[in-house]
Design a protein around this nucleic acid. Structure first.
Lengths: 147, 147
DNA sequence: TTTCATGTAATAACATAAGTTACATGAAAC
DNA sequence: GTTTCATGTAACTTATGTTATTACATGAAA
């Protein structure tokens, strides 16, 4: 089953925006992500509704962050993306008449809940500022290696 | 993102096999699951490799369980199915050159690992026998209601 | 008023999973 | 032994969901 990398992609884009001192166009972001500008606009449109980013038309326009890096957690981004399903596994039937299937669903559901809770809790602990700090650390490490 | 219900489906099938006192044909199982017999065979062929089920051809043939219900956990079944991906989220690029993306991946990967561990641990604690017991409980509850 | 950039709908291309068909293999019934 | 029943498996078709592309409208700055 193919995995949804939208959250991963959005974080990538947001951090690039954080590094830039001017708005970045959909086209610039799309080429960083090797995708199409329209895809970028579609995804960022969702984040704009939640006040994560801001967009401007015309010359010098493009996308920039609307909130402080330390104010935003991965969980916030995840919610802004519409809370897509976290788990690749699911039930065959959501409300089955078959008692066998009801028993199966009940057992799995509990495990699913726990895993989702763990994942979201972790996401809630990671701010964009932390990601940015990690990035800058890697940057220094790389330049040290080069010397 | 669509969820993989193969594990759910297989558990359903196995419990039905546990209730039957004779081999069940692919056709019988397929009609319970409203799917195609060939699909059943494909999936159960994987479980047979791991010794979970046994199949026989010809008259009176079909599928039956090869192990005791209390010996098999959901995790065993999951492994027999080839350990399909557990999470719906993933990385955009597995080994990125971009340091921004490396930072993103690192942060998410840890959260992913924890969630997967929780899920697999839970699966490891649930035996088919426990599912079967839950099913029989539901059966009694239903017949009580009917009275 | 031209250029640049987003906003958005409609459509196409692609990937994956599920379902279907067709036929070979082998076991039991007769 | 030959007919019937059931699995084994390859090849193919259908269904579904995601991503990419095209086309054009909107609005801001040069």
């Amino acid at each position: 089953m193919k995995r949804n990398s939208r959250l991963s992609g959005v974080l990538h884009v947001l951090l690039h925006m954080a590094e830039a001192d001017r708005p970045l166009t959909s086209e610039a972001l799309a080429s960083m992500m090797s995708t199409n500008p329209v895809v970028i606009r579609r995804v960022l449109a969702g984040l704009r509704r939640d006040g994560m980013v801001h967009s401007e038309k015309g010359h010098g326009g493009g996308w920039r962050l609307a909130r402080d890096l330390s104010d935003v957690t991965l969980r916030d981004i995840y919610v802004a993306l519409g809370e897509p399903g976290l788990l690749a596994l699911g039930h065959r039937t959501e409300s089955p008449d078959c008692l066998v299937e009801q028993a199966v669903n009940a057992a799995m559901e509990q495990a699913f809940q726990e895993a989702e809770t763990v994942l979201l809790d972790r996401f809630g602990e990671i701010t964009l500022a932390a990601l940015s700090a990690d990035f800058h650390e890697r940057l220094h490490r790389r330049s040290d290696d080069a010397v």
